[in-house]
Amino acid sequence: MAGQPTNVRGTPVRSADLKKGRVFTTTYVPRIQYAWDTGQAIGRYLEELKNGRLIARRCNNCQRIMIPPRMFCERCFGPTHAWVVVKDTGTVNTFSLSYVSWDVRRLKKPEIPAVIEIDGASKGMGILHVLGNVSPKAVRIGMKVRAVWKPAQQRTGSITDIAYFEPIKGKAPAAKRTAKKPFKAKAKKSKSRKRR
């Protein structure tokens, strides 16, 4: 076809060419550091992780108990109202068997990230963590799990103060889960409040 570019023979580049400087490249290693303010909600959450317990926030408007805690409710767009200590047990909401590490090595034994719905928090509210002490083949959605905490003196106020979640022996996975209805924001049609 007219106008179609023809493939031209290129010049192969080998790693030795790069090492010996036959091909020009520029490298740069960024030296960038941050220290994020945790603020009220996350600050308290981390403090309680160090204490070996999970804490959530309740919105009195929609009655949801939210974990990780936040000072505002994203559904009601108002402040949340109270701290609520929740259990360190829960249910596997979803999981993956991850056979490739973050630095792209193939793993024989997969990492098992999972979202765990926490007992005492509202339906659908969970924390993302990893599962341990379980055969990858045995992991199921709906499986009951509990937090395995690091020893108190090793805890630093971090999500890794929980080493992993492990299955609760003798608790069979829930037979069937009802599908969760997707959240729909209510289109509030309130009149403008005249204040002045």
């Binding site: 994020w36 303010d37 945790t38 603020g39 009220q40 909600a41 996350i42 936040r70 000072m71 505002f72 402040p79």
Partner: peptide
Amino acid sequence: TTPYSSFKELMF
């Protein structure tokens, strides 16, 4: 500095 608020809390 604003150590008492996360960026989300400032925005809220």
